[in-house]
Simulated scan of single mutants.
Amino acid sequence: MDWIYQSDDPILTTLAASFLIFIAIIIITRLVGLRSFAKFTAYDFAFTIAIGSIISATLTSSTTVVHGVTAIAALLFLTFIFSFLQRVLPSIKKLTSNKPLLLMDGNQILNENLKHARIEKEQLIAKLREANVMSFDQVEAVVLESTGDISVLHRTEDEDSLHQDILEGVRKKP
């Protein structure tokens, strides 16, 4: 039974640390803002992985809760600083964010853009089905967002055409 539980395992310490880390993340996130866990950029993805790693190390190794909370607070503070810098310095935003990429323009599949984004035509078609697109003629645009999500903008017969402001900032060529 040693592989299930050893009598010297610090199970109560792990439970207490889990509770403290959970409370600390809630408090720090409320102070810094929910955007810190949003899925926006490659930086945000790396941040999320780092937070998970810190939590894991805190709960399963000799790292103290204070050390873990300090590391999480530092990362959240860095996220806060980066989000501020992205707003005031376009060059920082350009370094940390991908611009959305057009995958379909109307009913035309942009194969060069699919290739650049490493998206297969079958994956694009699956996204069209998820969006209840019945015909390519219903498609106004398909956009690979900076988050990695694919947005399908489509219309029915009784709707107006797409307002061009919706595609502001979307790259038409890779």
Score class of each variant (00 low, 15 high):
163 H>Y: 11
38 A>S: 15
51 I>M: 14
45 F>T: 15
96 T>Y: 06
101 L>P: 00
9 D>K: 04
139 V>R: 05
54 I>V: 15
38 A>N: 14
157 E>Q: 12
40 F>P: 02
144 L>C: 05
91 S>Y: 06
156 T>G: 07
3 W>I: 06
41 T>R: 10
167 L>Q: 00
151 S>D: 05
60 T>S: 13
47 F>Q: 12
60 T>F: 15
114 L>V: 02
13 T>L: 13
40 F>E: 15
22 F>E: 08
107 N>V: 04
145 E>P: 06
15 L>K: 00
48 T>Q: 14
54 I>G: 05
156 T>C: 01
160 D>A: 13
157 E>P: 01
150 I>V: 12
141 A>P: 04
69 V>L: 09
121 K>E: 10
42 A>D: 11
93 K>C: 05
137 D>H: 02
20 L>M: 10
7 S>K: 12
86 Q>C: 13
42 A>F: 14
98 N>T: 13
107 N>A: 11
33 G>L: 09
34 L>V: 15
130 E>L: 07
147 T>R: 08
61 S>I: 08
29 T>A: 10
137 D>N: 11
72 I>K: 03
82 F>K: 06
111 N>T: 04
10 P>I: 09
88 V>A: 05
21 I>A: 07
128 L>I: 02
150 I>N: 05
70 T>H: 07
3 W>Y: 13
40 F>K: 15
125 I>A: 02
77 F>H: 01
158 D>P: 00
81 I>F: 10
33 G>Q: 06
159 E>R: 04
69 V>Q: 02
156 T>Q: 08
92 I>H: 05
132 N>S: 12
145 E>G: 09
71 A>P: 07
35 R>A: 08
63 T>H: 11
75 L>H: 01
149 D>S: 11
30 R>N: 04
113 N>L: 08
104 M>I: 09
119 I>P: 00
127 K>G: 03
100 P>M: 05
152 V>W: 03
38 A>K: 12
152 V>K: 03
8 D>P: 00
157 E>M: 12
113 N>Y: 04
101 L>R: 01
92 I>N: 10
48 T>I: 15
155 R>N: 01
154 H>D: 09
91 S>M: 08
161 S>M: 00
52 G>L: 11
160 D>E: 14
92 I>F: 11
174 P>L: 07
145 E>Q: 05
9 D>A: 13
15 L>E: 06
124 L>M: 03
142 V>I: 01
169 G>W: 09
48 T>R: 12
50 A>C: 13
81 I>T: 12
52 G>Q: 09
5 Y>D: 01
47 F>I: 15
132 N>K: 15
99 K>C: 05
115 K>Q: 13
6 Q>S: 11
10 P>F: 13
106 G>N: 01
91 S>D: 07
68 G>N: 02
118 R>Q: 14
117 A>P: 03
129 R>H: 04
48 T>K: 13
63 T>Q: 11
12 L>R: 00
169 G>H: 02
27 I>Q: 06
94 K>P: 03
55 I>Y: 01
101 L>Y: 01
